[in-house]
Simulated scan of single mutants.
Amino acid sequence: MTLDSTPPTRVLGEGARTPAKRLGVVVVHDLVAAIVTGEVAPGDLLPTESELSNLFGVSRTVIRESIKRIEEKGMVRVVQGRGTEVTAQRSWNILDHVVLSTLIENDATLGVLDEVAVLRAELESVMARDAAERRTESAVEDLHAAMARMHAAMEDPTRFGDEDIAFHEVVMKMSGHIIARGIAQRLVDEARENSARFRIATPEAHRLTVEEHQQILDAIVAGDEHAAATAMRTHIAASWERRRTARSDEV
Protein backbone atom coordinates (compact mmCIF):
# COMPACT_ATOMS: atom_id res chain seq x y z
CA MET A 1 0.00 0.00 0.00
CA THR A 2 1.39 3.43 -0.97
CA LEU A 3 -0.18 6.37 0.78
CA ASP A 4 0.97 8.99 -1.71
CA SER A 5 -2.19 8.32 -3.74
CA THR A 6 -4.65 7.78 -0.89
CA PRO A 7 -6.65 10.21 1.27
CA PRO A 8 -5.64 10.95 4.90
CA THR A 9 -6.12 7.94 7.15
CA ARG A 10 -6.83 7.37 10.83
CA VAL A 11 -3.39 8.32 12.20
CA LEU A 12 -1.87 10.65 9.64
CA GLY A 13 -2.87 14.25 10.12
CA GLU A 14 -5.46 13.39 12.77
CA GLY A 15 -6.48 15.82 15.51
CA ALA A 16 -6.30 19.52 16.27
CA ARG A 17 -3.35 21.64 15.26
CA THR A 18 -0.55 22.13 17.75
CA PRO A 19 1.69 25.12 18.64
CA ALA A 20 4.57 25.59 16.21
CA LYS A 21 7.34 24.44 18.56
CA ARG A 22 5.58 21.09 18.97
CA LEU A 23 4.70 20.49 15.34
CA GLY A 24 7.73 18.36 14.58
CA VAL A 25 7.07 16.19 17.63
CA VAL A 26 3.48 15.61 16.50
CA VAL A 27 4.52 14.76 12.94
CA VAL A 28 7.13 12.27 14.13
CA HIS A 29 4.73 10.64 16.56
CA ASP A 30 1.92 10.32 14.01
CA LEU A 31 4.19 8.93 11.31
CA VAL A 32 5.73 6.43 13.74
CA ALA A 33 2.21 5.45 14.81
CA ALA A 34 1.21 4.94 11.18
CA ILE A 35 4.17 2.61 10.74
CA VAL A 36 3.88 0.59 13.97
CA THR A 37 0.14 0.06 13.47
CA GLY A 38 0.70 -1.16 9.92
CA GLU A 39 -1.21 1.72 8.35
CA VAL A 40 1.94 2.11 6.27
CA ALA A 41 3.53 -1.31 5.78
CA PRO A 42 7.17 -2.25 5.11
CA GLY A 43 7.95 -1.51 1.48
CA ASP A 44 5.25 1.17 1.23
CA LEU A 45 6.19 4.73 0.41
CA LEU A 46 5.33 7.65 2.63
CA PRO A 47 3.42 10.47 0.95
CA THR A 48 5.63 13.12 -0.64
CA GLU A 49 6.88 16.10 1.36
CA SER A 50 4.26 18.27 -0.30
CA GLU A 51 1.43 15.84 0.52
CA LEU A 52 2.56 15.42 4.11
CA SER A 53 2.84 19.17 4.45
CA ASN A 54 -0.80 19.46 3.43
CA LEU A 55 -1.87 16.56 5.64
CA PHE A 56 -0.31 18.01 8.78
CA GLY A 57 -0.65 21.69 7.92
CA VAL A 58 3.06 22.33 8.49
CA SER A 59 5.94 23.56 6.37
CA ARG A 60 7.96 21.23 4.18
CA THR A 61 10.96 22.08 6.37
CA VAL A 62 9.17 20.58 9.39
CA ILE A 63 8.28 17.51 7.32
CA ARG A 64 11.84 17.13 6.06
CA GLU A 65 13.29 17.33 9.59
CA SER A 66 10.67 14.91 10.89
CA ILE A 67 11.43 12.36 8.18
CA LYS A 68 15.11 12.63 9.04
CA ARG A 69 14.34 11.83 12.68
CA ILE A 70 12.28 8.81 11.68
CA GLU A 71 15.07 7.67 9.37
CA GLU A 72 17.46 7.86 12.34
CA LYS A 73 15.14 5.45 14.17
CA GLY A 74 15.63 2.97 11.33
CA MET A 75 11.96 3.06 10.32
CA VAL A 76 12.32 4.52 6.82
CA ARG A 77 14.96 4.90 4.17
CA VAL A 78 15.21 7.26 1.23
CA VAL A 79 15.33 5.33 -2.06
CA GLN A 80 16.79 7.39 -4.88
CA GLY A 81 14.23 8.02 -7.60
CA ARG A 82 11.45 6.32 -5.64
CA GLY A 83 10.79 8.15 -2.38
CA THR A 84 10.80 7.43 1.36
CA GLU A 85 10.23 3.73 1.96
CA VAL A 86 9.13 2.10 5.21
CA THR A 87 11.65 -0.51 6.38
CA ALA A 88 11.08 -3.94 7.88
CA GLN A 89 10.66 -4.09 11.66
CA ARG A 90 14.05 -5.73 12.12
CA SER A 91 15.63 -2.42 11.12
CA TRP A 92 13.77 -0.34 13.72
CA ASN A 93 15.43 0.92 16.87
CA ILE A 94 12.87 -0.72 19.14
CA LEU A 95 14.45 0.77 22.28
CA ASP A 96 14.04 4.31 20.95
CA HIS A 97 11.63 6.13 23.28
CA VAL A 98 9.18 7.22 20.58
CA VAL A 99 9.17 3.82 18.87
CA LEU A 100 8.71 1.80 22.06
CA SER A 101 6.18 4.15 23.66
CA THR A 102 4.14 4.25 20.43
CA LEU A 103 4.17 0.46 20.21
CA ILE A 104 2.89 0.34 23.79
CA GLU A 105 0.16 2.94 23.31
CA ASN A 106 -1.17 1.08 20.27
CA ASP A 107 -1.15 -2.34 21.94
CA ALA A 108 -4.55 -2.97 23.52
CA THR A 109 -3.59 -6.52 24.53
CA LEU A 110 -0.60 -5.33 26.65
CA GLY A 111 1.55 -7.82 24.74
CA VAL A 112 4.39 -5.32 24.30
CA LEU A 113 4.54 -4.64 28.03
CA ASP A 114 4.45 -8.41 28.60
CA GLU A 115 7.58 -8.65 26.46
CA VAL A 116 9.18 -5.73 28.28
CA ALA A 117 8.59 -7.48 31.61
CA VAL A 118 10.01 -10.79 30.37
CA LEU A 119 13.11 -9.21 28.87
CA ARG A 120 13.70 -7.04 31.91
CA ALA A 121 13.32 -10.07 34.21
CA GLU A 122 15.89 -12.05 32.23
CA LEU A 123 18.41 -9.21 32.11
CA GLU A 124 18.05 -8.26 35.75
CA SER A 125 18.14 -11.87 36.95
CA VAL A 126 21.54 -12.26 35.30
CA MET A 127 22.72 -9.03 36.90
CA ALA A 128 21.42 -10.11 40.32
CA ARG A 129 23.31 -13.40 39.93
CA ASP A 130 26.53 -11.59 39.12
CA ALA A 131 25.93 -9.03 41.87
CA ALA A 132 25.87 -11.93 44.35
CA GLU A 133 29.15 -13.22 42.95
CA ARG A 134 30.90 -9.84 42.82
CA ARG A 135 29.50 -8.25 45.98
CA THR A 136 31.78 -6.10 48.07
CA GLU A 137 31.31 -4.77 51.57
CA SER A 138 30.77 -1.26 50.25
CA ALA A 139 28.23 -2.39 47.65
CA VAL A 140 26.32 -4.42 50.22
CA GLU A 141 26.13 -1.33 52.43
CA ASP A 142 24.68 0.60 49.49
CA LEU A 143 22.10 -2.14 48.95
CA HIS A 144 21.08 -2.10 52.62
CA ALA A 145 20.76 1.69 52.45
CA ALA A 146 18.54 1.45 49.37
CA MET A 147 16.37 -1.10 51.18
CA ALA A 148 16.07 1.17 54.20
CA ARG A 149 14.95 4.06 52.01
CA MET A 150 12.25 1.86 50.49
CA HIS A 151 10.95 1.04 53.96
CA ALA A 152 10.94 4.74 54.86
CA ALA A 153 8.98 5.62 51.72
CA MET A 154 6.17 3.09 52.16
CA GLU A 155 3.53 5.81 52.65
CA ASP A 156 4.65 7.97 49.72
CA PRO A 157 3.86 6.34 46.33
CA THR A 158 6.03 8.68 44.26
CA ARG A 159 9.04 8.44 46.55
CA PHE A 160 8.53 4.68 46.92
CA GLY A 161 8.71 4.30 43.15
CA ASP A 162 11.95 6.30 43.06
CA GLU A 163 13.51 4.19 45.82
CA ASP A 164 12.35 0.98 44.14
CA ILE A 165 14.23 1.96 41.00
CA ALA A 166 17.25 3.07 43.05
CA PHE A 167 17.44 -0.42 44.62
CA HIS A 168 17.49 -2.05 41.19
CA GLU A 169 20.17 0.37 40.02
CA VAL A 170 22.41 -0.61 42.94
CA VAL A 171 22.05 -4.27 41.94
CA MET A 172 22.82 -3.44 38.31
CA LYS A 173 25.90 -1.47 39.31
CA MET A 174 27.10 -4.31 41.54
CA SER A 175 26.84 -6.73 38.60
CA GLY A 176 29.47 -4.89 36.59
CA HIS A 177 27.44 -5.21 33.38
CA ILE A 178 27.36 -2.30 30.94
CA ILE A 179 25.19 -3.28 27.97
CA ALA A 180 22.64 -5.29 29.97
CA ARG A 181 22.43 -2.46 32.49
CA GLY A 182 21.81 0.12 29.78
CA ILE A 183 19.07 -1.92 28.12
CA ALA A 184 17.41 -2.79 31.43
CA GLN A 185 17.40 0.83 32.57
CA ARG A 186 15.79 1.82 29.29
CA LEU A 187 13.08 -0.79 29.83
CA VAL A 188 12.58 0.35 33.43
CA ASP A 189 12.14 3.95 32.28
CA GLU A 190 9.54 2.96 29.71
CA ALA A 191 7.68 0.68 32.10
CA ARG A 192 7.58 3.39 34.73
CA GLU A 193 6.35 6.01 32.27
CA ASN A 194 3.42 3.73 31.50
CA SER A 195 2.80 2.75 35.13
CA ALA A 196 0.28 5.57 35.57
CA ARG A 197 -2.09 3.36 33.57
CA PHE A 198 -1.84 0.70 36.30
CA ARG A 199 -3.04 2.02 39.65
CA ILE A 200 -1.67 -0.29 42.33
CA ALA A 201 0.07 2.19 44.63
CA THR A 202 -1.49 0.53 47.68
CA PRO A 203 0.02 -0.41 51.05
CA GLU A 204 -0.40 -4.10 50.17
CA ALA A 205 1.40 -3.69 46.84
CA HIS A 206 4.21 -1.82 48.59
CA ARG A 207 4.44 -4.51 51.27
CA LEU A 208 4.77 -7.26 48.68
CA THR A 209 7.37 -5.25 46.75
CA VAL A 210 9.45 -4.73 49.88
CA GLU A 211 9.27 -8.43 50.75
CA GLU A 212 10.43 -9.39 47.27
CA HIS A 213 13.29 -6.90 47.39
CA GLN A 214 14.33 -8.27 50.78
CA GLN A 215 14.60 -11.75 49.26
CA ILE A 216 16.82 -10.36 46.51
CA LEU A 217 18.98 -8.53 49.05
CA ASP A 218 19.33 -11.57 51.33
CA ALA A 219 20.40 -13.79 48.42
CA ILE A 220 22.97 -11.28 47.18
CA VAL A 221 24.42 -10.72 50.65
CA ALA A 222 24.65 -14.49 51.14
CA GLY A 223 26.45 -14.83 47.82
CA ASP A 224 23.78 -17.26 46.59
CA GLU A 225 23.86 -16.60 42.85
CA HIS A 226 21.01 -18.94 41.94
CA ALA A 227 18.72 -17.61 44.66
CA ALA A 228 19.50 -14.02 43.70
CA ALA A 229 18.65 -14.66 40.06
CA THR A 230 15.46 -16.51 40.96
CA ALA A 231 14.33 -13.86 43.44
CA MET A 232 14.85 -11.07 40.90
CA ARG A 233 13.08 -12.90 38.10
CA THR A 234 10.18 -13.80 40.42
CA HIS A 235 9.87 -10.24 41.71
CA ILE A 236 9.71 -8.61 38.27
CA ALA A 237 7.22 -11.17 36.98
CA ALA A 238 5.02 -10.83 40.09
CA SER A 239 5.18 -7.04 40.06
CA TRP A 240 4.07 -6.89 36.44
CA GLU A 241 1.31 -9.46 37.03
CA ARG A 242 -0.06 -7.30 39.86
CA ARG A 243 -0.14 -4.32 37.52
CA ARG A 244 -1.60 -6.30 34.66
CA THR A 245 -4.34 -7.74 36.85
CA ALA A 246 -5.19 -4.30 38.23
CA ARG A 247 -5.48 -2.98 34.69
CA SER A 248 -7.71 -5.88 33.60
CA ASP A 249 -9.99 -5.31 36.59
CA GLU A 250 -10.46 -1.67 35.58
CA VAL A 251 -11.35 -2.39 31.96
Rank of each mutant, 00 (worst) to 15 (best):
F198S: 00
E212K: 06
V76Q: 06
I70A: 05
E122G: 04
R243M: 12
H177R: 07
F160G: 01
E163H: 12
L113F: 02
G24A: 01
L12E: 08
V79L: 14
L143W: 11
A191C: 04
V40N: 01
A246M: 07
V40T: 11
V140D: 06
E49A: 02
A219N: 12
E65W: 03
E115G: 15
T84M: 13
P19M: 04
T18C: 02
A219E: 05
L52N: 07
R149C: 12
A88N: 12
R134V: 00
R159G: 10
L119P: 00
V25N: 04
R64H: 09
M154S: 15
M147K: 11
E155M: 14
A201I: 00
E124W: 08
N106A: 05
H97Y: 08
R135Q: 09
R233H: 11
S91F: 13
E163S: 09
S91I: 02
Q89L: 10
I165F: 13
Q215L: 15
V32S: 02
R233N: 06
E14L: 10
G15N: 10
D44M: 06
E212A: 15
T234N: 04
V36E: 09
E204N: 02
S175M: 15
R82N: 06
G57S: 07
A227P: 08
R22V: 00
H144A: 13
A191R: 00
A227C: 07
A131H: 08
R10W: 12
G111T: 01
L143P: 14
L187M: 08
I220N: 13
E155R: 15
L113Q: 11
L123Y: 08
R90L: 06
S101C: 05
T158K: 14
G223M: 10
S59L: 02
R134W: 03
T230C: 04
K73D: 05
D96T: 06
T158L: 13
E169N: 14
S138P: 01
R134G: 03
R242H: 04
L46S: 09
K173C: 01
E241L: 05
I178H: 14
R129A: 11
T202Q: 05
R197I: 02
V78D: 12
T209D: 14
D130Y: 12
L123A: 04
K73T: 01
H177G: 01
L31R: 07
A246Y: 08
L45D: 00
V188R: 00
E211S: 09
D249A: 12
S59A: 07
S239Y: 05
L208D: 08
T209Q: 03
E211V: 01
A237K: 06
M147V: 06
T158E: 15
R120Q: 10
V28K: 03
